[in-house]
């Protein structure tokens, strides 16, 4: 990734206040963050710090309480610099527009997040179908081969192990060539050996696709030497409230 690569996600002054079981009020802040195409970002921090909350906001699935700037550039890969003003859309409660933009983000959840009534192949094809992309069977087969799920394509999620589900979810997240892929603790449900294997395949696929990845994970040791920009959610107290601030580790 070069410093001149187009920006995929740009945000400033992002804040989310929420109630948690441990603290009555909790505040998550992101002072500033620019994410460029092809960049790999690792977000770590203690449990409950707000890693998933941040990813949900980045995925346009959760409304922030404040944002000075919050832009998404879905056409970054095609050289289209048009910005989607996520903050303005949330302000206008333009839920349908946000849903439309979400089609351009891949999201890998902790346990896959597959639709139980579709087989693996159909799950993988949902984003492409929503975007009206032509069926690319050979591309799906290549990706399935890389993720070692070729023989699992006709199986339903209930017939797959957790690791297999994760691999199908990775394939789905990458299927429509999104400019941004988010992954929330993708290895948390896997044993160390399986986690290492899935991570390897995941990273290979990301490199192959040339896309952007933001991953939230506790398993930072597994991701050493993988060229991640490491951000951490620092927890503390501000104005008598528990808070977490997203900062670069080597800043």
């Amino acid at each position: 990734m070069s410093a001149s690569a187009p920006i995929v996600l740009a945000l400033r002054g992002l804040r989310k206040d929420r109630r948690t079981e441990r603290a009555e009020h909790y505040s998550l802040s992101v002072p500033a963050l620019n994410v460029r195409l092809g960049e790999k970002i690792l977000i770590s921090g203690p449990s409950g710090a707000g890693k998933s909350t941040f990813l949900d906001m980045a995925a346009m699935a959760l409304k922030p309480d404040a944002a000075d700037e919050f832009f998404f550039f879905p056409g970054a890969r095609a050289g289209d610099g048009k910005a989607c003003d996520i903050a303005a859309a949330w302000m206008r409660k333009d839920i349908e527009r946000l849903a439309m933009w979400r089609k351009h983000v891949g999201y890998v959840l902790q346990t896959g997040g597959l639709l139980p009534f579709l087989n693996a192949e159909d799950n993988i094809r949902v984003p492409s179908r929503l975007l009206g992309l032509p069926a690319q069977r050979d591309k799906t087969e290549r990706m399935a081969e890389r993720l070692k799920i070729s023989k699992l394509l006709k199986k339903f999620p209930s017939q797959l192990s957790v690791g297999e589900r994760q691999r199908v979810a990775i394939a789905r997240a990458l299927a429509a060539d999104p400019p941004l892929v988010l992954a929330d603790e993708p290895l948390a449900s896997l044993d160390p050996e399986n986690a290492r294997a899935v991570l390897g395949m995941f990273m290979d696929s990301i490199e192959d696709a040339g896309t952007t990845l933001i991953v939230a994970s506790h398993a930072t040791d597994l991701m050493e030497n993988m060229n991640f920009r490491h951000l951490i959610l620092e927890t503390g107290a501000r104005d008598g409230k528990a808070s977490a601030v997203l900062r670069a580790v080597h800043e």
Binding site: G75, A78, C84, M100, K103, H104, L130, L131
Partner: peptide, 23 residues
């Protein structure tokens, strides 16, 4: 793939083909 899918040049959501496809 173009981001313009489902939106016009000014970024307005076009509730046409893309919306019907999603439906």
């Amino acid at each position: 793939m173009s981001f313009a899918d489902g939106a016009d040049s000014s970024g307005r959501v076009v509730l046409g083909k893309a919306w019907m496809r999603s439906l």
